[in-house]
Amino acid sequence: MTKTESTPAGGATAVAEPVVAVSGVVAGYLPGVNILNGCSLTANEGELIGIIGPNGAGKSTLLKSIFGLVKVREGSITLRGEEITNLKANKLVAKGVGFVPQTNNVFPSLTIQENLEMGLFQRPRELAERLEFVIEIFPDLGKRLAQRAGSLSGGERQMVAMSRALMMGPHVLLLDEPSAGLSPVRQDEAFLRVKEINKAGVTTIMVEQNAKRCLQICDRGYVLDQGKDAYTGTGRELLNDPKVIGLYLGTLGDE
């Protein structure tokens, strides 16, 4: 999927503003210790962006920096051209940015429906409409709305977490390791749901340890290494890049 283009009256082609643009970001958790060291990324309208790389490369830190959970010390982050660097998470949600963390991503003592309602606390009057949208993507949840989230499997909790993030109707969804800890069958289901979310019109940025599957479904990918974007290209290009295969995919690239 490419940038949205339009042709003005003069005949020149205008390229739309990226939905998310990360430029030269330096960020970290502790004073003087940077995890990101000049990282850049763009996500265009309707794209599914995959972020892969070795452990400690800064993948999750990048998502948290976009979502205002990690202090950005240098660089900038924009949302449709608007500066959002270090904006608080609640304000980002109101602007149409959703985030699904890897762990502790549901309220276990609440039912599935109550978890979903928590995702819409800023606009409770839209509950019926948003529930209908979410249940179309996750039909199994619709049959179990009264079940407590704490009784769900890891894969089911991941579905609830993604659903809750969708309740506000985000323009952009940030996913941190959606397949982590899941069985192979549940991993396939998670990737299928990610594709369905993206096809529903939500620009998606996904960090994923399952590098091969991530590159198979994404429009474009970024390989992070030591806090920088070392390689970028379409998912297919990265899957077939000898350097990416040798350094990050290993034998997975030959399967």
Score class of each variant (00 low, 15 high):
residue 3 K to F: 10
residue 3 K to E: 13
residue 4 T to N: 13
residue 6 S to L: 13
residue 7 T to W: 08
residue 9 A to L: 11
residue 11 G to W: 07
residue 16 A to N: 14
residue 19 V to S: 05
residue 20 V to W: 04
residue 20 V to G: 04
residue 20 V to I: 15
residue 22 V to T: 07
residue 23 S to K: 15
residue 24 G to I: 10
residue 24 G to N: 15
residue 25 V to G: 02
residue 25 V to E: 00
residue 29 Y to D: 07
residue 52 I to G: 00
residue 53 G to V: 08
residue 54 P to T: 14
residue 55 N to P: 09
residue 61 T to A: 05
residue 63 L to Y: 03
residue 65 S to R: 00
residue 69 L to V: 02
residue 69 L to A: 13
residue 70 V to T: 00
residue 71 K to R: 15
residue 74 E to R: 15
residue 77 I to F: 10
residue 82 E to V: 15
residue 86 N to E: 05
residue 88 K to W: 10
residue 91 K to T: 09
residue 92 L to Y: 09
residue 98 G to I: 08
residue 101 P to Y: 06
residue 103 T to D: 15
residue 105 N to D: 05
residue 115 N to T: 09
residue 115 N to V: 12
residue 117 E to Y: 08
residue 126 E to Q: 14
residue 128 A to Q: 14
residue 129 E to M: 10
residue 133 F to I: 10
residue 142 G to A: 04
residue 144 R to F: 10
residue 150 G to A: 06
residue 150 G to F: 08
residue 152 L to E: 00
residue 157 R to P: 00
residue 158 Q to R: 11
residue 158 Q to T: 04
residue 161 A to I: 01
residue 163 S to Y: 04
residue 166 L to Y: 03
residue 168 M to C: 13
residue 174 L to P: 00
residue 179 S to K: 07
residue 182 L to I: 02
residue 183 S to V: 05
residue 190 A to F: 01
residue 195 K to V: 11
residue 195 K to N: 11
residue 197 I to E: 00
residue 198 N to A: 07
residue 199 K to F: 06
residue 201 G to T: 06
residue 202 V to G: 01
residue 206 M to N: 02
residue 212 K to D: 04
residue 214 C to H: 04
residue 215 L to R: 02
residue 216 Q to C: 05
residue 217 I to L: 12
residue 219 D to K: 07
residue 219 D to Y: 08
residue 220 R to D: 01
residue 224 L to P: 00
residue 228 K to P: 02
residue 232 T to I: 11
residue 232 T to K: 12
residue 232 T to W: 14
residue 234 T to L: 03
residue 237 E to M: 06
residue 238 L to R: 01
residue 238 L to F: 03
residue 238 L to G: 01
residue 239 L to E: 03
residue 242 P to W: 04
residue 246 G to M: 13
residue 250 G to M: 01
residue 251 T to P: 03
